[in-house]
Design a protein around this nucleic acid. Structure first.
Lengths: 122, 122
DNA sequence: CAGAATCCAGCAAGATACTG
DNA sequence: CAGTATCTTGCTGGATTCTG
């Protein structure tokens, strides 16, 4: 017998929380969004703010945010090239969530790490 | 020459938003948390509420939430077995975020899907 | 009922090199 | 500067089978 249904279906269907997680839950998206809240940033500027993210991953995650309408990509045709990323008006609607997530991480991040340490040595 | 730094380092370090994403950003965690807000749920009960999640994944994600101290697992020694999952007091601190994410998904989910449709046919 | 164990395909993501 | 292209690997997660 089968386990649960296995036909294809986006896990986001019919769950508003899952949709939001899908938009901001990418591996580096939280950090990208957080960094863009304080204003537009150039590509390498973001890279410097996220020293453990490769250019490849930064590009991929930015493209996804762009496709979701969260981030705007402004290309300045200069030499050397200049590209600026910023939150769209739509992206700005995520601000309250980002701020709340920042506050939660500030407040409870250590507790999470402690909990992980504890269950590590079990 | 090297790209960016590649030494091992949790992407969560020094970014409170990334920490929070790490806790609630798992593939099915949003939905699990959302379903637990309305009260404790048994394992198969959760399974029924999340028809596209296999038992395996449900177990794995619940274990992670448990290790982070977000979810409590109560075992009733009966036959047939009964196990109830609920939010811990610590997990409850996530409620405001979950609610905000639910509201955002309710309000803007369709816009996200539309944006994805559009950029699909480019 | 609530899982655990095993197997395996596929994708995510790192390393590296190249470019307009 | 801001990427792209390619190769490669390791982990994610699905399918299936078994159990107290």
């Amino acid at each position: 017998m089968k386990d649960y249904k296995t036909e294809k279906c986006p896990n986001t269907t019919a769950c508003p929380v899952a949709i939001t997680v899908d938009v901001i839950g990418g591996k580096w998206k939280g950090k990208i969004l957080y960094n863009l809240i304080s204003g537009p940033k150039r590509f390498n500027e973001l890279g410097r703010l996220m020293p453990y993210t490769t250019k490849r991953m930064l590009t991929l995650q930015l493209r996804e945010l762009e496709q979701d309408g969260i981030v705007h990509r402004e290309i300045y045709r200069e030499i050397p090239p200049k590209v600026e990323y910023s939150l769209t008006a739509f992206g700005e609607t995520l601000k309250p969530i980002i701020y709340l997530m920042r506050d939660w991480g500030d407040m409870y991040g250590n507790e999470v790490f402690m909990n992980r340490k504890i269950s590590e040595k079990v």
